[in-house]
């Protein structure tokens, strides 16, 4: 176990950040979302009018804030990993909880968005655009929650000091999952909200 961390000027060996098996899981998730996005593209290409009409009813403010929240969450979880590397356990745990809090912000705003849509009588069967909108954002929403659970779990486990420099696979893995959730949202935000 390293007592101190030294910065090396030379190139470091390539390593998978975190658990390889989890990366396969992350790739699988990217695959599913990818197929979903492509299906959206296909559907939109065949019926642009329905999509444009639906998108016109989407406000941009909340999703933009949501994007900023997730990006900030990625920053804070990256900072948390760095803190673990420097063996600053308390700072690291706090940054993890900050990530969870930012995620909670996303969740709350998203719930508000869904509530608004349901109140307006929009359902999965309203039309193809709304079907995609609700499916994609809800599916992603579930992954945000899973990401929060994973990071929260790591924050709890960290209390017994198990994440020492050199033994950070668990933290890196959790961070990687969160970044995947963020990455997917970045595409989703552009696709569903901005590209109207």
């Amino acid at each position: 176990m390293n007592q101190s961390v030294t910065l090396s000027a030379s190139a470091n060996p390539r390593e998978v950040p975190g658990d390889l098996a989890m990366w396969f899981f992350i790739l699988a998730e990217l695959l599913v979302f990818g197929v979903f996005f492509l299906a959206y593209g296909y559907a939109r290409a065949h019926d642009p009018a329905t999509f444009v009409a639906g998108q016109r009813q989407l406000a941009l403010g909340v999703p933009t804030v949501n994007t900023l929240l997730l990006i900030a969450g990625s920053a804070s979880v990256s900072a948390a990993v760095r803190a673990f590397v420097l063996d600053r356990q308390r700072t690291a745990r706090r940054l993890l909880w900050l990530t969870v809090a930012l995620g909670m912000g996303f969740v709350v705003l998203k719930c508000g968005e869904f509530a608004g849509k349901f109140a307006a009588g929009i359902t999965l069967s309203s039309d193809t655009f709304w079907m995609f909108y609700l499916s994609l954002t809800f599916f992603h929403f579930l992954h945000v929650i899973l990401g929060m659970v994973i990071i929260g779990a790591v924050a709890v486990y960290a209390r017994d000091g198990r994440y020492r420099p050199g033994q950070l696979a668990g933290v890196e893995t959790a961070a990687a999952y969160w970044h995947m959730v963020d990455l997917v949202w970045v595409v989703l935000f552009a696709l569903v909200y901005v590209a109207r």
Binding site: V5, L7, P17, R82, G166, L168
Partner: peptide
Amino acid sequence: MTMNALRDFP
């Protein structure tokens, strides 16, 4: 990741 994370902190 450890070395690299450190270098990339800023």
